[in-house]
Design a protein around this nucleic acid. Sequence first.
DNA 1: ATGAAAGCGCTAACAT
DNA 2: ATGTTAGCGCTTTCAT
Lengths: 342, 342
Amino acid sequence: MRRSTLEEVAALAGVSKMTASRALRGASDVAQDTRERVQHAAERLSYVANRLALSLSSQRTNLVAVVVPSMSNTVFPEVLSGITTGLEGSGMQAVFGISDYDADKERDIIRDMLSWQPAAIVVTGLDQPEETVRMLKAADIPVIQVMDLDGTPVDFNVGLSHGEAGRDMAKALLAAGRRKIAYIGSALDKDLRAGKRKAAFEQVLLAQGLGLVSHRIGDDFSSIALGKRLTADMLASRSDIDSIYYSNDDMAAGGLFACMEAGIAVPSQILLAGFNGLDLTDCLPALIATSRSPRRAMGEITAKLITDVMANGRVSGPKTIAFKPPIIGLEGAAAGLAKKSE
Amino acid sequence: MRRSTLEEVAALAGVSKMTASRALRGASDVAQDTRERVQHAAERLSYVANRLALSLSSQRTNLVAVVVPSMSNTVFPEVLSGITTGLEGSGMQAVFGISDYDADKERDIIRDMLSWQPAAIVVTGLDQPEETVRMLKAADIPVIQVMDLDGTPVDFNVGLSHGEAGRDMAKALLAAGRRKIAYIGSALDKDLRAGKRKAAFEQVLLAQGLGLVSHRIGDDFSSIALGKRLTADMLASRSDIDSIYYSNDDMAAGGLFACMEAGIAVPSQILLAGFNGLDLTDCLPALIATSRSPRRAMGEITAKLITDVMANGRVSGPKTIAFKPPIIGLEGAAAGLAKKSE
DNA sequence: ATGAAAGCGCTAACAT
DNA sequence: ATGTTAGCGCTTTCAT
């Protein structure tokens, strides 16, 4: 069954293309019975409008392009989910691309998405190379960079400071009385935001005359399995560690499972800290610390920003929206230590 | 900076639109220096091709539309990831839509995606209402239904039988000596595949003269937190249960955490069974049974199917590709029980 | 309330 | 190797 065109619908309804077009879009100035004839014709032919023609002709699309590094890390699907939800009812449609944490791939995907003439584009982070930034600017549409705040945005920016998150966690661990602090992460050359957290985290330790007493960097992407493996490895090599900062919650959850197998009490003996505040973290059989990042909210705010700009031409509020992730799961951590020193 | 067109690139390079088009697409019959002039012109203008015009003119797109019920359940992003990976290098581009487990929304999203004239469309499951099926057929492109096998496919079908998975797990639990079997699930009216597993699971029990000794159905979507809560609730109400079948691994993981808090030994005292074989399952501090579904592989096979059809006009192999998820995490479960009865 | 003409930016098909 | 013409399916603009 070949796809039918507006012309065929119009012919079947006995009107011109133009009238059919108006009728299907619910224009006001179409006679009641004309409208019905056209609608019936469209149904009989299973007519589906051709958006290529529609958008080419009208010089606008309902597309919002969104480029994220990965689908394997739950946080990105959550942001996408938030964007989709936030766009609901606006007539806008989100389209997703995956860059695999690869700057070249990201550039290609952004170019590809731009070729569909989206109404706006959302990209992850602020660390695009110059060429990519130039493309984004040349697109002449709202550009929203999400998740990160540390850097110079092209246009709009919705996110949180990973440097600050790292610093805050370092201070929190120190405040909880920890001094023998280790770090476990995954491919940081890829996950730039995790890298920023780690760098800022270390700076705070350094300022206190402390350093990481141990660290492990996996060469794979973050996962519970990787966190477990690296932690088991670290625990086997030294026994004086009193806390471990992980690149994120998946890694930290794996770390907890490794500690449980090794018979190490968490958080009293070793305090584990991650990043994200995943659903998982709340359910774990021991308390682990984490910075709760508002993934869905960032997605929804991003969507709102976009619908706002589309509706009003220009945005009313600020161009940068900053979130500050609270640290949770540290209740009683200091107390745990205190008991030990009694 | 307004978007530049092919015409402007051509003018800057001092050639016709057509030559510019050929040069940029790397056609063979373009003079070396012409090609270079055009490419430089394109770069200077940050030219990005307009795919709307391109596709409208050439009557084909590189789009593969993919509709999944959710982004919150990790399995779908994994399938999407598999599709994206499998499409890599083919020039095809996956576009995702989310139906929120809602048949009406799914219909609308499918219509929306079809309006972009994709080269193929991938939808989740086989339970679309008639109207949706009609639309899919009218689209006159390859339709691939994924994840499920129990039903009548529109065209291509890649997945596994959830009925069989449910039956297999029931038999496995019985073989492990369990008789006091309970069920815990989430919104089954939405997640039809989980519903199919449960129905088939119960049938096997019934055939043995057994029934579920207890069950809890949450009204929210599956999550670790929900699994934990419902399990805690169930454990508080009766103490004779020797195994629990969950709607999936997230729920089962939550169940494990509830058992740990309640001081119940898993799997010796209560055997927990889920579905999916998530990364998480392998790392948990106790063995839980699960059917390992090949999400990425299903995605990749789907992609291969599509590139195949696109390349050869028709597909070489069968139109249905069936996976059989192996049950894992049952090692020593029977032994656990044996000890108890000694 | 309806229709006709022009054109969105590109490529296919046919020149040259 | 390059250019010309026509047209993809729709909307915009201007008539009527």
